[in-house]
């Protein structure tokens, strides 16, 4: 998965959205429930993997599909975000792909010219 953002913060929020767009049709997910989460990492790469892993864990343990990701605070080692979505409803939601994990394989988080780019490979 290749994701772009006009800034560092947007890159992380776009990456989360893109991942959920692989998992389900996000246009059918309503932002009914919200929660605030914090994630840490030793560098932007680790922060990315930990952030996406955290969201996968939330999805599975609480049966929540997410679609909105407001990054409240972010630096190279930590991010705090408010995420919104709703509980999985088999009548309305279809799962496209089961993502087992976000991996470090060929993972890149970099600034190219004026925008940020991330490449993430999932184990599916």
């Amino acid at each position: 998965m290749v994701v772009y953002g006009t800034n560092f913060k947007e890159l992380y929020s776009n990456s989360a959205f893109a991942m959920f767009d692989l998992i389900t049709d996000t246009s059918r997910v309503k932002p009914k429930n919200s929660m605030v989460i914090e994630v840490e990492g030793n560098n932007p790469d680790e922060l990315m993997v930990n952030w996406l892993s955290e969201l996968l864990y939330i999805m599975e343990s609480r049966s929540l599909l997410l679609k909105e990701f407001d990054i409240l605070e972010i630096d190279r080692n930590r991010l705090k975000a408010e995420v919104r979505g709703e509980h999985y409803d088999p009548a309305r939601h279809e799962f496209f792909t089961e993502i087992k994990a976000a991996t470090y394989h060929q993972l890149t988080v970099e600034k190219i010219d004026n925008r940020w780019k991330a490449q993430i490979i999932f184990d599916t």
């Binding site: 864990y57 599975e60 343990s61 799962f95 792909t97 089961e98 599916t124």
Partner: peptide, 13 residues
């Protein structure tokens, strides 16, 4: 936590 609800499920893929 992830294992509590998935015993006896086939999964995907």
């Amino acid at each position: 936590e992830r294992g509590l609800e998935q015993m006896g499920t086939l999964g995907s893929g």
